[in-house]
């Protein structure tokens, strides 16, 4: 099993906020407490949909110090790969699910004198947790939140009621927009910028900040993560004399293990080098994702790190 530690949870609340967004609350099946986390962290939710298992990351929006439950908000994406539709249509209160331990790729820089948060749409969720964390530590923050319309403004009421002076909301359908240049210009020294929202918004904020001379390490962003599946492919394991199929949602390493072949691993993240495997023969292209092999090794076609890397093509024979 790759990824962070898993937690078995039960859905204890499913609340539709508006046409697009639904909130879910998870409590541990085993009772007891969930791990605390840091604002900005996400959890990976496993969705078992018949034969298919989807793994989607969602930002945790609840109070990081509240260990009784986690909450996430899921925006319905009718054109997506189906994860959000599954959550909206198939998951109900009382269901048991498996989620991962929190992982934070969007954490606060605790040295900052001020945290300037810029959110677009569902990108508000990590900030909800960060705000709770900062309020507890009497941190200095300010939020600028762009929504499509009042009807789709998730958590606007809650935010403006609890923090009337720190929250600024902009509605697209009322032609309101963040005056970014002036906003960035007027910030005190030691301010850090955090932006989470659609790609266009992230690029806009990062671009403007760079133009105004903000140091790179003072600008933090999180794009919505997508799972990294890939096309199915076939592999021959020469030593164990087996031909296996690697499914869309599983890693090569997982497929090898599923076939009952004992393969070495440690980090399962492409960094430790433990799973390095010799390629005996191939016809096709490697999709190398590891940080372990050198560029020349990647292009040599002689090695692959099966915990993270994949293959597209006709033949792949591994020394395993």
């Amino acid at each position: 099993m790759s990824g962070a530690e898993k937690i078995a949870v039960r859905v204890t609340e499913k609340a539709a906020l508006n046409d697009l967004v639904t909130r879910f609350r998870f409590e541990p099946v085993a009772g007891g407490l969930l791990p605390t986390f840091s604002g900005g962290a996400h959890t990976v939710v496993e969705m078992r949909d018949g034969e298919i298992t989807r793994l989607n990351p969602y930002s945790l929006m609840s109070d990081p110090f509240d260990q009784t439950a986690y909450t996430i908000s899921v925006r319905r994406d009718d054109a997506g790969r189906g994860g959000s539709l599954f959550m909206h249509n198939r998951v109900n209160v009382g269901d048991e699910m498996v989620i991962s331990n929190p992982v934070n790729l969007f954490s606060l820089d605790l040295r900052a004198r001020k945290h300037l948060m810029i959110a677009g749409g569902i990108g508000i969720t990590p900030f909800l947790a960060q705000i709770k964390q900062l309020d507890r530590a009497h941190g200095n923050w300010e939020l600028h939140y762009g929504c499509r319309s009042e009807a789709l403004g998730s958590y606007v009421d809650y935010l403006t009621a609890t923090h009337p002076n720190d929250v600024n909301v902009y509605y697209d359908d009322q032609d309101q927009a963040i005056d970014l240049e002036n906003l960035l210009d007027g910030q005190p020294l030691g301010t850090h910028i955090y932006v989470c929202g659609p790609k266009g918004m992230i690029d806009w904020v990062r671009g403007k900040a760079a133009e105004l001379g903000w140091p790179r390490e003072a600008v933090h962003y999180e794009e919505f993560l997508a799972p990294k599946p890939g096309k199915p492919f076939e592999v021959k394991l020469a030593v164990s004399n087996k031909v296996i199929q690697v499914g869309e949602q599983e890693s090569l390493l997982e497929a090898i293990e599923r076939a009952g072949v004992d393969a070495p691993y440690l980090c399962r993240g492409g960094a430790c080098g433990m799973c390095e495997t010799r390629v005996i023969d191939y016809a096709g292209n490697f999709i190398h994702r590891d940080h372990w092999l050198e560029d020349e090794e990647h292009s040599s076609g002689e090695k692959i790190m099966p915990c993270v890397s994949r293959f597209e093509g006709k033949t792949l024979v591994l020394d395993r």
Partner: peptide, 13 residues
Amino acid sequence: RALKFLLNIQQGA
């Protein structure tokens, strides 16, 4: 390589 590994160390692991 060691740094990459460390940056990815996760809660509970």
